[in-house]
Computed example of a mutant assay.
Amino acid sequence: MLKKIIVKTDERGLLFKKGSYVMHLQPGIYRLTPLSDDAVVLLSVSKPFTVQGKELNLFLRDERLLEELTVIDVQDHEYVLHYEDGKFVSLLTAGKYAFWNVLKKHDFVRVDIRQPEVGPEVDKAILPKVAGYYYTSEVASHETGMLFYNNVMQKVLAPGKYYFWKGPVLASLKTVDLRQQQLDMTGQEIMTEDKVTLRLNFVCQYKIINPLRALEIKSFEDQVYILLQLILREYVGTLKLDDLLRMKQEIAAFVLSRLNEKSEDYGVMFLSAGVKDIILPGDIKEILNTVLLAEKKAQANLITRREETASTRSLLNTAKLMDENQTLFRLKELEFLEKICEKIGTISLTGGGNLLEQLNSLLGGAKQ
């Protein structure tokens, strides 16, 4: 009795004789003799073409079979994005694949992973479906990015999110902050020309304007700090303590000027600089306080002597005027008499005459 084989419309059959492929079978009914070595493998056309234990190349010699297959060969340096009827299905790695094209249309997008940046030909919406095959890097809005492939500079990246394929080339992103930054130097010990050791707190603000140049400098902030330190030592070492305390603004202007002479070497623009504090040793501070106190006392004594001299000169001028003008002298007497009377509660009169006559006689007697 013959063995009946049914190939459905959504299937195709592969006929093998003694384990060797013979032909593929279209939908229909087939009968095989039961004692023969013939066998039929049924495959669904909605699934990729695969035969367990058999190489794909074995079947690609059948031209009739090839008419119903779409074959894609993925190289070692590639990923291939597989779409069915315009919808993403899977990511294919290195190898050869075959898909039935009788019910669905297959499209492919090849990606060369030797250029790891995910290009515009790839819809970013599919990336969550291929997790594990890519990685991301971000450049913040206040940054600029430098893209490196295997440590070789490629290009500058603007702010945004970037996607890279995992593969033979490692993409790395180095970012540089373009905002205004501040460098604080605190407690820096420096010796003045007159051998006084003091501590300075200094600050400067800067912005990076050449990110690539800044990245080329190892330990960028440390080197800028040392540059600032050397310039301060150079300048302060030529000043005596008194000059240093008097010329704080000049120090800032000098340091800023010298920093900007080196700005191109560091890829930055120095915006401002200034002395925050000058911290003196305890014994020097006591000496300065003593000197300051003595200066203030001397100033106070000078002011007192000036006031006394002015008062004496005023009295002398008044005396000359009164001596030359009797009426003025009389008015001055009455002025003092008025002041005396303001402090007297009761006036008693004795003898004859009225109050004015007695006062006149009193003043007249005093004058004599």
Rank of each mutant, 00 (worst) to 15 (best):
L2C: 03
K3Y: 15
T9Q: 12
D10T: 08
R12T: 05
R12A: 10
H24E: 13
H24Y: 15
H24S: 12
P27M: 02
G28A: 06
L32V: 12
L32M: 10
T33L: 13
P34G: 13
P34E: 08
D37H: 11
S44C: 09
F49Q: 01
K54G: 02
E55G: 06
N57S: 09
F59R: 05
R61F: 12
R64L: 14
E68C: 15
L69Y: 08
Q75N: 09
E78A: 09
Y79V: 01
V80H: 11
L81N: 11
Y83D: 01
L92P: 07
K96F: 03
K96D: 05
K105Q: 14
K105G: 12
H106W: 11
H106Q: 07
D107N: 14
V109P: 09
V109F: 10
V111A: 09
D112N: 15
R114N: 10
P116V: 06
E117Y: 06
P120A: 03
E121M: 06
V122L: 10
V122C: 07
D123M: 07
L127I: 02
P128C: 01
P128A: 07
K129H: 09
A131T: 13
G132K: 04
Y134A: 03
E138I: 08
V139P: 02
V139W: 04
V139R: 00
L147M: 05
F148L: 09
V152M: 03
V156R: 05
L157F: 07
L157M: 07
P159N: 01
G160Q: 00
F164R: 00
G167N: 03
P168M: 07
P168G: 09
L170V: 13
S172C: 02
L173S: 01
D177H: 09
L178F: 15
Q181D: 03
T186A: 12
T186R: 15
G187D: 13
E189I: 12
M191A: 10
E193Y: 09
N201R: 08
Y206C: 01
K207W: 02
I208N: 03
R213A: 02
E216N: 06
E221R: 11
D222A: 09
V224R: 02
L227V: 11
L228A: 14
I231R: 03
T238Y: 07
K240D: 12
K240Y: 15
D242S: 07
L244F: 05
E250F: 11
I251R: 05
A252T: 02
A253K: 13
F254M: 00
V255M: 02
S257I: 00
K262Q: 12
G267A: 00
M269Q: 11
L271W: 02
A273Q: 03
A273E: 05
I278V: 13
L280W: 09
P281I: 04
L288S: 11
N289Q: 14
N289F: 13
V291I: 07
A300S: 07
I303K: 15
R305Q: 13
R306M: 12
T309R: 05
S311H: 14
T318V: 05
L321R: 04
L321F: 04
F329T: 06
R330Q: 12
L331F: 14
I344L: 02
I347P: 05
S348Y: 11
E357I: 01
E357G: 00
Q358L: 10
